[in-house]
Design a protein around this nucleic acid. Structure first.
Length: 484
DNA sequence: CACGCCTTGAA
DNA sequence: TCAAGGCGT
């Protein structure tokens, strides 16, 4: 029981229901390790918002570990090998990661460690169903969500039940030695933070405890109205669990079982079902990424490789900055910039606007989201952008183009969401809040709005851009017919 | 093989 | 009403 055991923490920054930590704790004194992996491809190195979340996660975890979390930066393999050498650890435990880079990295490291005589134990700490365990009758992976979930997941072995917090005996010896083992002091992580991260930490409490509070509050207060409320961006009606799930401050297993125990009340069946389905969408995204390792880069539907995207950097910038002249779009993009988060429905709207009305490549939107979202998740991000763009496996049909005015009127009727994030439109009457360009001059003046200076004119014509998008889409068919 | 089905519309 | 087309059984 005195032998040191390494636990390599990654997207599982919690003590409860952490299989690697739990089982390692049963075999020896635990050395909890986090490595800032500098071998991650640049394109998918952490975005600024994620980095901020991660840093604060590590602070919380370190507190919970009595200051014994060991943080390194570099190439994981040499670091782990040096650690083994310096501490005499004979075992390494970790919970699996599922992005292509991590899968390749971890399998290489596993081999290398094993050949060095080290025991390696890996566990499932992030997914309800392992992607390789769910397949159709013919053995091939599903492409459509509903059968994947209903037939595949719900008929498979149930997800494992959450584990308790372990009784930890920590390895507290000083670790010195080679250059790789230069530790990053936790305090340093948030010392260097750029000032803009304040807007994120003002909106979020980043800790394992806070994740639980979100879950409990959601089930208690929000689940009853989830069905309708979840589509209204001015309400706080969703669970807000996405960033916690991404970094593992809470596990999907904890969410799955807790919500079924607590939410299993008459009248809540449908809401509970809808909520669990959202968790399953996260699973499905990982499932797709696992079976399509290039999902973040390449269209799942190859026909879209010939799609005539436009390339208008200025327009893309208008979108990023929330200056398109369409209030619901701009409000969403500003919420993202101000808080590192955007309401789910609005994510669909801004994505549809970029990809279909502006006809910019979904890569541009995915990259911006990756950099700015606190819940940036390679699987969900890529799968969702492909879904909106129409090039995914189970995609929204390309001809289904959201109209930001109608969607705004439907889901932000009085413009509460818009007014909150676009103060310059704050006093515009509800009648014109989604269409300021239609407001009479006098109404604009009274609201202090000057189109073109205090708030932009619409940067495009909705009807025309919709038509252009539809013909661009049709051109794919014609080209294909010529080939055939 | 045929048929029902597919997260979240718009005109 | 319109809008593909392929998936899954």
């Amino acid at each position: 029981m005195n032998t040191p055991v390494i636990v390599w923490l990654r997207h599982d920054l919690r003590l409860a229901d952490n299989p690697a930590l739990y089982y390692a704790a049963q075999t020896g004194r635990v050395i909890p390790v986090f490595i800032d992996d500098c071998t991650t491809p640049d394109q998918w190195s952490l975005g600024a918002a994620s980095r901020c979340w991660l840093n604060h996660s590590l602070v919380d975890l370190n507190d919970q570990l009595s200051g014994q979390l060991r943080i390194f930066r570099g190439d994981p393999l040499p670091i782990l090998l040096s650690l083994v050498q310096q501490t005499g650890a004979q075992e390494i435990h970790w919970n699996r990661c599922y992005t292509p880079h991590a899968i390749g990295r971890d399998s290489q490291i596993k081999l290398a460690l094993k050949s060095a005589g080290i025991e390696v134990h890996s566990y499932n700490g992030s997914l309800l169903w392992e992607p390789w365990n769910i397949s159709k009758a013919d053995g091939k992976p599903y492409k459509i969500f509903t059968p994947y979930y209903r037939k595949g997941c719900l008929n498979a072995a149930p997800p494992s039940e959450p584990l308790p917090r372990p009784d930890l005996q920590l390895f507290t010896d000083e670790i010195t030695g080679s250059d790789e083992l230069q530790q990053t002091p936790v305090a340093e992580l948030i010392l260097d933070e750029p000032s803009w991260t304040k807007k994120i930490t003002d909106h979020w409490t980043v800790s394992e405890e806070a994740a639980w509070q979100h879950l409990q509050q959601f089930i208690r207060e929000r689940l009853p109205d989830y069905q309708e409320g979840r589509d209204v961006p001015s309400l706080e009606a969703t669970s807000s669990l996405s960033p916690y799930l991404q970094w593992g401050q809470i596990s999907p297993h904890q969410v799955w079982y807790y919500s079924q125990q607590q939410g299993n009340q008459p009248g809540l069946e449908d809401a509970l079902d809808t909520f669990l389905k959202e968790l399953a969408w996260r699973e499905f995204s990982y499932y797709l990424l696992y079976h399509n390792p290039k999902m973040a880069e390449e269209n799942l539907n190859e026909r879209f490789n010939r799609f005539p995207w436009l390339n208008h950097p200025d327009q893309c910038q208008d979108w990023q900055q929330g200056l398109t002249g369409f209030p619901i779009i701009d409000a969403g993009m500003r919420q993202l910039w101000q808080t590192g988060y955007m309401h789910n429905r609005v994510r669909m709207l801004v994505a549809s606007f970029l990809v279909k009305n502006q006809r910019q490549h979904w890569h541009l939107g995915a990259a911006w989201f990756w950099d700015t979202l606190v819940d940036a998740d390679l699987a969900s991000n890529s799968a969702s952008w492909q879904w909106v763009a129409g090039c995914g496996t189970d995609a929204s049909p390309y001809f289904r183009i959201f109209n930001p005015v109608l969607q705004g009127q439907k889901f932000d009727k009085d413009g509460a969401y818009i007014r909150h994030y676009i103060p310059e439109l704050k006093t515009l009457p509800s009648r014109y809040i989604h269409t300021p360009w239609e407001a009479p001059e006098q109404v604009l003046t009274e609201a202090g709005v000057t189109l073109g200076s205090s708030y932009p004119h619409p940067i495009l014509d909705l009807k025309q851009s919709r038509q252009d998008a539809l013909s661009a889409f049709s051109s794919l068919k014609e080209q294909q017919n010529q080939v055939l």
